[in-house]
Design a protein around this nucleic acid. Structure first.
Lengths: 82, 82
DNA sequence: ATCAAATGAGAGCTATAGTCTGTGGATTTA
DNA sequence: TAAATCCACAGACTATAGCTCTCATTTGAT
């Protein structure tokens, strides 16, 4: 597959994983994803599904939306108040 | 497929689409996705891929992260089954 | 009520997501 | 010298996303 959004996504996963001190293998175990598949994901070689995205965010203990690069332009207007 | 996260995602797509005054058909055209496939997505019957998620967010003119339910709280502390 | 547009939903097919198992290279530690 | 850990990558699968076609059903307007 390989496209720039997948690569950006994968890089973000890797970055957060390392920040948490996890290896691909133990993160894969936490997420219940195959270890070799995790490698493909981080390299942006696979177009993963919504449920896998959730599995990863849960394994990393973060919100799904934190797996996506922050958009500087589209949405800086909404107040997070309340 | 069908699981609660996919249903929530689909509902959010539909909600935003209607708020923008679009039909499934013209939104599908914008996203370059088949009309009937869009229906399946909105009903939460398909576990769509990352690139499709981006196609949808771009068709709606919103940020990808806006397609996900807001997480009010960071942790659900639900026991992990295996 | 009638009609048309919008949507629901099934079947069938192809492409690819995702799994399993292993190999090898580069580090690291003993 | 190992041996242990981490990761890239390959091949051979299986499961399902993705796409298209079709027809039924709902919705909304007149």
């Amino acid at each position: 597959m390989r496209n720039e959004k997948l690569v950006a996504f994968g890089q973000r996963v890797r970055e957060i994983r390392k920040a948490k001190g996890l290896t691909q293998e133990n993160m894969a175990a936490l997420a219940e994803i195959d270890r070799s598949y995790m490698g493909h994901i981080e390299r942006g070689e696979k177009n993963i599904t919504l449920t896998k995205i959730y599995q990863i965010s849960e394994a990393l203990g973060i919100d799904v939306t934190d797996l996506f690069p922050r958009s500087t332009m589209t949405n800086n207007s909404a107040p997070k108040k309340d």
